[in-house]
């Protein structure tokens, strides 16, 4: 059992963050960032995030394992068909990677290879099911594996997306297909989290709240316009706009979200965009 799985099973509050692999072959910056995040429970390694081509997350996740960190390997359905996904999953297990975050993936049109053919042979629900199959010793064709992998499978959810009832329907399917934890998209309105958790709590699956550090009003506006599923509401835009020190205000906002997480969720997933040094401040009670 991974340390993350163990902690969540013991109902402890967990902390995660993420690292994007390099656009290139030098991993030193990524490993430096991992060092900054070493007090956290696990580190997500993103998979061609935002549909921009980067180094394989499998490679970086293994390097983190070698350094004693605990990665959460993100795997999307955008770039691989069912054979490639399963073979990467077996490879991950062989490389000592246990935590997974299984995702649909952003559409290529948002990325730097907009002419790429989107694969989506599986969706995230089916990928979860495939991973459960591998754990049970069978591939998607029903063929027996010589040795079965062991995984702690996570999934994503966007609690603030509307209609929320529809979001919950997909959430339920992911629970049915073996999601052992959820990491959420950033939620900026408490009532969205409240209503979501009121419905999701009965599943008993730990939810780790996405907390995003807003650095400025400009950044918040950029997120609203360019990042699917992220909507910073007007009142927060105003707070950032009027603040003497917008970054400090961003830290305050993030801290409020961490307090919601302590009330409703079982952890936080921090997205600090180069301001990892502010994590202790964000997590301060």
């Amino acid at each position: 059992m991974s340390r993350l799985a163990d902690k969540l099973a013991r109902r402890q509050f967990v902390f995660t963050a993420e690292i994007a692999p390099a656009k290139g072959v030098d991993v030193s910056a990524a490993l430096q960032k991992a060092e900054q995040l070493q007090t956290l429970d696990a580190i997500n390694i993103t998979d061609n995030q935002g549909a921009c081509m980067r180094m394989s997350p499998l490679a970086l996740a293994r390097l983190l394992v070698e350094q004693g960190y605990e990665p959460i390997l993100q795997l999307t359905c955008r770039d691989r068909n069912r054979m490639a996904l399963q073979s990467d999953l077996l490879g991950a297990a062989a490389l000592g990677i246990e935590n997974l975050l299984l995702l649909t993936g952003d559409h290529p049109r948002f990325g730097d290879h907009a002419a790429a053919r989107p694969v989506f042979d599986l969706d995230s629900v089916q990928l979860l099911q495939a991973a459960q199959g591998l754990i049970a010793g069978r591939d998607m064709a029903g063929k027996k594996l010589v040795t079965a992998p062991s995984f702690f499978c996570g999934a994503a959810v966007a609690p603030a997306a509307q209609p929320q009832a529809l979001v919950l329907k997909k959430f339920s399917k992911k629970v049915t297909c073996g999601a052992g934890f959820f990491q959420t998209q950033a939620v900026f309105q408490r009532r969205h989290l409240e209503t979501f958790m009121a419905a999701a709590a009965s599943s008993q699956v730990p939810v780790i709240l996405g907390v995003l550090l807003l650095k400025s009003v400009k950044m918040a506006q950029f997120l609203n316009q360019n990042i699917p599923g992220v909507q910073v509401p007007q009142d927060l835009l105003q707070r950032l706009d009027e603040a003497a020190d917008p970054l400090l205000e961003g830290v305050r906002i993030a801290r409020e979200m961490v307090s919601w997480a302590r009330q409703y969720c079982q952890g936080v997933h921090l997205m600090t965009f180069g301001h990892e040094e502010l994590i202790p401040q964000i997590l301060a009670h």
Binding site: L103, Q126, A158
Partner: peptide, 20 residues
């Protein structure tokens, strides 16, 4: 569905609209 998903919307759905 821009991604041809079979089990429900992706995380990019916003106010009932497509991310693409």
């Amino acid at each position: 569905c821009s991604k041809g998903l079979l089990n429900g919307p992706c995380g990019g759905m916003e106010d009932g609209c497509c991310e693409v």
